[in-house]
Design a binder for these strands. Structure first.
Lengths: 340, 340
DNA sequence: ACTTGGCACTCAGGGCAGTTGAGTGCCAGA
DNA sequence: TCTGGCACTCAACTGCCCTGAGTGCCAAGT
């Protein structure tokens, strides 16, 4: 079947180009891959592939390189995720098992991932919206200053200092703490708002101003402001394939400095814990139109709590990258699940 | 005096090279700067400066560029810190005054500094060793799990989850909390260790294992592990003058990814709140031998609590950069001092 | 004792022409 | 449907020359 061979040619082109970073021509293709036909035939196939928009020539008299669409087809139909080697798996285990903290887990994971893939890795902290409250603490630091600490079941800890207009007594603070704790513990964070805000009416009128100030801060800060956090590693890997993006890593670095952009990249990966790959222009983020983003959710128990992934050049080794991302995500998920 | 003119020539060379990024020759020098002598004279001076190792030629038939030593002399003897414009000062104020948190202050400051200087900015959190304890909190999260929160007088908050071998009752925890709080509050962090570790003996033998576990964790984690933190911003500015470092930003990015390196850069700035400038090879950090580092301490009240600064190419505008760094540091110091 | 104009020398970089070679498209025949 | 052959294209390299900015040095001037 001729269609089959055409796809085989596309696969060979992608693999060769990823390996050599040079446009690949018909002759070298038949030499390096056993396609069983002559270069002329390949040329015909290539012309067809080019018509379909899957490959392109940088200039006449040069070989072909895959287009974004070409990579898309490669990823969707011509490749499968490559499992890690035993050594790599062991490395993941020994590297991640030493973590003592959620912060530690996040940091180690993202570093590990950047080293495995030689690309820029990113990881999102377990989302607060999908977590439940394990503990809320209010600590008085002074008459008009309160420290609030919130601990989610994922191990994530958010803390925040609140300045209040009205002085608050230690006693009131303790009562408030108890009531908030009672109402909120075990509740999903999205559901905290209604439960807690109704608390104000329980308190006598003269105490209400302070109480509502604290509660307002609680809701505004924890739920809205600090909500999502992302950690990055391996930006120096950008330099390695610097020539790709027209010689300048600038726009990429700029994009990666923006938390919002990172969140969008991570957030757009679809539901479920299946790998998401966005190639080149599929990322509508400015500055990242010639990069690919591979992301996946990681779960605590059965529930996906956040996402992680890597950013690299479109001409990356997709099977290996996808393998690494998936493996690390699974391992992180396991750690989160075990540590109860 | 001929020596004076020689230095004037050096100053002109530095200023011109910083402005144009091109080797500067004798003719253009007399044209652009009113030195009152002929190019030939300048050539003689240049030859002398080259003998002294202050300037060099990239190749014969090219103009001169300053050497690291040349910049050194420029910074030490030929320039003075350039104060910010009114507009810039106002920008600092309005940008930093909105900060609600220490985290917020740090983040805003470092971003601001990178924008003002167009370089990579870094800031160290107020050092714990030089702070006193404002508050210590222990919160039971489960029978064998405790959250410890430490708040320093600088507003810095460190939190940490501790897993313990032995179950601990809520009651014991409360007593321990009270005692630790009592002993440690107001004490400099370096002095906490002796005070707190002697607490173990106060408790009955059957409670000691748990108590000493917690205290050990407290000391080990807060005092030793998390001790220093650094925040970075503006790495994309590296790309702007990318051609400088032999075309590759890689080693610089790599160096900046290492917390240890950053701490060394910041830590090496001398005592006091005076500006420190290290130029090119004066940084013995691998990968940063063609960058300059400008740092300064910032104070809370009278005491320097940490350092901040920027990393940029050796051919930076030292007077302006030093001005910006100093200005932001002062402003941060003021905020820390005011917020009591 | 400096300063200056003059002069010969060096050398990176740009422009130009020629060559090479990898690669293509197309066509006629198996 | 595949294949070999053929003419064509064009990036990239080469060697060459030229230009111009810049230097070092020297002899004369102040």
């Amino acid at each position: 079947m001729t269609e089959d061979r055409r796809l085989a040619v596309l696969r060979a082109i992608v693999e060769d180009y990823v390996a050599t970073h040079e446009p690949v021509g018909s002759r070298s293709l038949v030499e390096r891959y056993s396609l069983g036909v002559s270069p002329a035939t390949i040329r015909n196939d290539m012309a067809a592939l080019e018509d379909e928009g899957l490959i392109a020539q940088p200039h006449t008299s040069a070989g072909r390189i895959p287009t974004d669409q070409g990579y898309r087809v490669f990823v969707d139909r011509l490749s499968q995720v490559k499992p890690l080697s035993l050594a790599e798996k062991r490395a993941i285990g020994s590297f991640l098992d030493g973590a003592v903290d959620l912060d530690d887990v996040m940091q180690r994971s993202v570093r590990l991932l950047s080293q495995l893939t030689h690309q820029v890795a990113m990881i999102q902290y377990p989302s607060l919206t999908r977590s439940t409250v394990r503990h809320i603490e209010l600590v008085g630091l002074g008459p008009q200053r309160v420290l609030m600490v919130l601990i989610a079941d994922t191990g994530r800890v958010e803390q925040r200092v609140i300045d209040i207009q009205f002085p608050i007594s230690d006693d009131l603070l303790a009562r408030l703490r108890a009531r908030i704790s009672e109402e909120a513990t075990g509740v999903r964070l999205v559901d905290v708002a209604p439960k807690v805000s109704s608390l104000v009416s329980e308190f006598p009128p003269d105490e209400r101003p302070g109480v509502s100030a604290i509660i307002a801060s609680l809701l505004e800060t924890v739920v809205e402001r600090h909500e999502e956090r992302v950690m990055l590693a391996g930006t120096s890997n950008l330099a390695a394939f610097g020539e790709d993006w027209g010689g300048s890593v600038r726009p990429v670095l700029e994009a990666l400095e923006e938390q919002m952009v990172l969140l969008r990249l991570l957030g757009e990966s679809m539901s479920g814990d299946s790998l998401s790959v966005r190639i080149g222009h599929e990322n509508d983020v400015e500055g990242l139109t010639s990069t690919s983003v591979v992301t996946v959710g990681y779960a605590r128990g059965d529930e996906v709590v956040a996402h992680m992934g890597v950013v690299g050049p479109t001409r990356m080794d997709y099977p290996s990258t996808m393998g690494s991302v998936r493996a690390v995500a699974r391992y992180v998920g396991r750690i989160l699940t075990e540590q109860q």
